[in-house]
Nucleic acid binder design. Structure first.
Lengths: 340, 340
DNA sequence: ATTGGCACTCGAAACACGTGAGTGCCAACC
DNA sequence: GGTTGGCACTCACGTGTTTCGAGTGCCAAT
């Protein structure tokens, strides 16, 4: 079929362009791929592909390069996910195995992604709002100063120092601790905050003020969206690898990497670990990053997407292996979180 | 004096080169600075300066640019620290004022440094080993699992999950908590670790095993040098500002920024906030960064240098104002830590 | 539908050339 | 002795010209 061959040509163009970084012409194409037809035929196909907007020429008398639309088609229909090499699998397990806490898992994942894909890696910390309360602890620091520690099911620990309007004796503190735990243990953060509303009312109006302060701090810690927005970035040195053409976009890229809000938007909504989100060029929600693609997916224990991780790189990237790596890392991290 | 004028010429060359980024010639020099002599005279001085190794020509028929040695002399003898503008002072106070915890202070300092100097900023977290213990808390997570929380005088909180060989009842846990606090409260970390050695011995040999595990975890948390090595980086987007010549060194720079160990070595030993360390070009302990300079200083409460902060940029930078900014930020951060 | 042939286009590299900023040196001057 | 104007010299840089060739589009033949 003609249509089939046209797709084969597109695939060949994408593959060659990705590996050589140079516009690819009809002759080189038939030489490097067993297309079984002459350059002239390929030229006809290329002309058709160009009409349909999948490829373009940087200038007359040059070869073709894929457009965003071309990459899109390539990703959607042409590329089969490349299986990871044994060495890569080994790297994933050995590197993630030794993680000691949540921070460490995130950090190791970032490194891993960056190394394997040779792109810039981004890992979002597990989202606070979906996790549940494992324990609330109060520690007396001084007569009017408490430390509030909130431990979540994901292993995250949030702490706040609370200044009390009046001193509380240890017994009262213990009582408050019990009350707080009873109200919130096992609850989702969003629900837990509501449950707390009643707590101060159980107390004598005279003692209510300090309790209210503690509860307010706890609610604040639970709803603090700063923590939702935490991400870790790695592999920025890979930016320097990109050829000249990408040099222009290195600045917006570096700027984006400093703004965690931007990165979160890039990663997008958390999807299940089995679904990969690929955004190509103009599909990325920032105009300045229109020569950039994002490959991301959700991760979390039990196939529930707690957060997102992924990579950012030039549109001209090796999608099949990048996608395979991102997916593999997400799955493995999910597994780790399941166990921990 | 002739010698004086030569230094004036060097200063003028540095200033012009820093602002224009282009080799500066004798004629332009007399025009832009009131040197009161003719270009020919300046040329003689320049020839002398070149002989002495303070300046060099990129090629014949071009102007001169300072060598590392030239910058060194400039920094040591020629530049008076430029006072900050009112706007800059305001920026420092307003931005740092609102910090809510230690993490936030560090983060805001990085942003501030990066914005004001328009360079890459690095801030080391206050060093663990010099701080003292404020509180140790144990939280029962499960029958054989405890959460250990270590609160330090600097506001830093370290936590560890401890797996016990056998269950402990709440009373015993409370006893251990008291013992741990008694042994370590107010102690420096280095001393506290020693003090803990006795704690298990106070217990019945039968109960000693779990206690030993907890103590070991605490000692580990105290001596964990991972925390010593934590740094925060900001303003990497400023790398993109540097002209072509610096482009070559952008890659090693990005690589260095990923390695916290490297950054710590760059920052060097913490000095008192009143002393600025300036390393220029080859003085930087990494060959790859020989077109780079570092301006750093210590900070911490009460003029005691807990950690280091500073900036990294091309040797061709505006030393007077950069040095002023770094010093000002360090002082202000120290003040904040004093109060907090 | 495919293919070989052919004229055409246009970027990249090579080369030549003039321009000018900047230098070093020297003789004259203060 | 230090300073200055004059002058010949160097060489990076920008501009214009030319050549070269990879790659294209089109067409007639298969």
């Amino acid at each position: 079929m003609v249509e089939d061959r046209k797709l084969a040509v597109l695939r060949a163009i994408v593959e060659d362009y990705v590996s050589t970084q140079e516009p690819v012409g009809s002759k080189a194409l038939v030489e490097r791929h067993r297309l079984g037809v002459s350059p002239a035929t390929v030229r006809n196909d290329m002309a058709a592909l160009e009409d349909e907007g999948f490829i373009t020429q940087p200038h007359t008398s040059a070869g073709r390069i894929p457009t965003d639309k071309g990459y899109r088609l390539f990703v959607d229909r042409l590329s089969q996910v490349k299986p990871l090499s044994a060495a890569e699998k080994r790297a994933i397990t050995t590197l993630l195995e030794g993680a000691i806490d949540l921070d460490d898992v995130v950090q190791r994942s970032v490194r891993l992604l960056a190394q394997l894909t040779r792109q810039v890696a981004i890992v979002q910390y597990p989202t606070l709002s979906r996790s549940t309360v494992r324990h609330v602890e109060l520690v007396t620091l001084a007569s009017t100063r408490l430390l509030l520690v909130l431990i979540l099911s994901t292993g995250r620990v949030e702490q706040r120092v609370v200044e009390l309007p009046e001193p509380l004796d240890d017994e009262t503190v213990a009582g408050i601790r019990t009350a707080l735990n009873r109200a919130t243990l096992g609850e989702k953060l969003s629900d837990a905050a509501e449950r707390l509303a009643d707590v101060p009312e159980q107390y004598d109006p005279a003692d209510r003020a300090p309790v209210a302060v503690v509860v307010a701090a706890l609610v604040e810690a639970m709803s603090d969206h700063r923590s939702d927005e935490r991400v870790m970035v790695g592999g920025t040195a890979n930016l320097a690898r990109f050829g000249d053409s990408f040099d222009a976009s290195i600045k917006p890229m570096l700027e984006a990497l400093e703004e965690h809000v931007v990165l979160l938007k890039l990663l997008g909504e958390a999807t299940s670990p089995s679904t990969l989100t690929v955004r190509i060029g103009h599909e990325v929600p920032y105009q300045e990053l229109s020569t950039t693609s994002v490959v991301a997916t959700g991760y979390g224990p039990g196939d529930e997407a707690l957060a997102t991780l992924g990579i950012v790189g030039p549109t001209r990237m090796d999608y099949p292996s990048t996608m395979a790596t991102v997916r593999a890392v997400a799955r493995y991290v999910s597994k780790i979180l399941d166990e921990g």
